[in-house]
């Protein structure tokens, strides 16, 4: 099997001034091109894990680190965040907090300018990213702060996509958006999965949207990773997830209940369509 593009080995992390470890010995391997969904309850260490993948932890936060994280051949303790940024793009939960410029155009080309690409290449990458994230041309001159929540996050994703990084980490990209905004961002993720063969790591609470896209699901719980599996396998044991404060989509809970009552013994469906099939099958039998 090919060398993983991300290797986390025995990672422990404690923020300065804190008594408790946020991450308590995390091991994880992610391969090039995988779409990984990371789930877990609040304060389980998901964001710290995400920030350790682009070097923000330990470079930008004082604390104690054990173990190591190697991303695209770079040990995060030995490389700056700016160096790691050449391989890893990072999308933050709050779109406004990551805007660095006064217009959408400046925002999208900011990282490309930093990397010193020629003007023509910057322009080509900018249009590609805008098209992928469905941002119209007449938005270029607009201040990103004046857009809707979903549009803001799409601009943030476009700014990262324009770098064409090998790895994109999205830390709860829909957590601060209204339902329309959430749908817009999920559509962009779907498009990314379809057209852009990068390694995508998404921390997300909307499991029903992420599960169908993911190649691998990771459960983070109290600073550890108790489960890593492909989505279908990951959601088979719904009770295990509920015990770890992860609430699977309603369709999965419903079918799990049907299994518990002996009405169904097949795999847990991933989508509403699949669940409908299961229900029809049960009704047909009766």
């Amino acid at each position: 099997m090919a060398e993983p593009v991300i290797r986390v080995e025995g990672l422990k992390w404690k923020y300065e001034g804190s008594r408790d470890w946020v991450l308590r010995g995390v091991d994880l391997e992610i391969h090039q091109g995988e779409f990984v969904g990371i789930v877990g309850p609040n304060d389980s260490g998901k964001t710290t894990l995400a920030m350790s993948l682009n070097g923000l932890v330990p470079n930008n936060y004082p604390g104690v680190m054990e173990g190591r994280v190697v991303v695209d051949g770079m040990d995060t303790r030995e490389h700056s965040v700016a160096e790691i940024a050449e391989s890893v793009g990072f999308v933050f939960p709050d779109p406004e907090s990551q805007f660095l410029s006064m217009t959408v155009e400046e925002e999208v080309v900011f990282a490309l300018e930093n990397r010193g690409f020629p003007r023509e290449e910057i322009e080509e990458r900018m249009w590609w990213a805008l098209e992928l994230t469905n941002i119209p041309e007449d938005y270029l001159e607009k201040p990103p702060y004046e857009l809707s929540g979903g549009e803001k996050q799409r601009v943030a994703i476009a700014s990262v996509l324009a770098m064409r990084p090998k790895i994109i980490v999205l830390d709860e990209p829909t957590s601060m958006l209204d339902p329309i905004g959430k749908t817009e961002v999920i559509e962009v993720l779907t498009e990314m999965k379809r057209r852009y063969n990068a390694t995508v790591i998404v921390i997300e609470h909307r499991l029903e949207d992420i599960a169908p896209l993911a190649d691998k699901m990771v459960l983070v719980y109290r600073g550890t990773i108790p489960k890593v599996a492909p989505p279908r396998e990951f959601f088979q044991d719904v009770d295990f997830l509920l015990e770890h404060d992860v609430f699977p989509p309603d369709v999965m809970v419903l079918v799990n209940e049907l299994r518990r009552r002996g009405l169904y013994d097949g795999p847990v469906p991933m989508t509403v369509d699949e669940a409908e099939g299961v229900v029809r099958e049960i009704l047909g039998r009766r």
Partner: peptide
């Protein structure tokens, strides 16, 4: 937040 965003964009 600004510093993290700047670093993450390779500044």
């Amino acid at each position: 937040e600004v510093s993290n965003a700047l670093d993450s964009r390779g500044f």
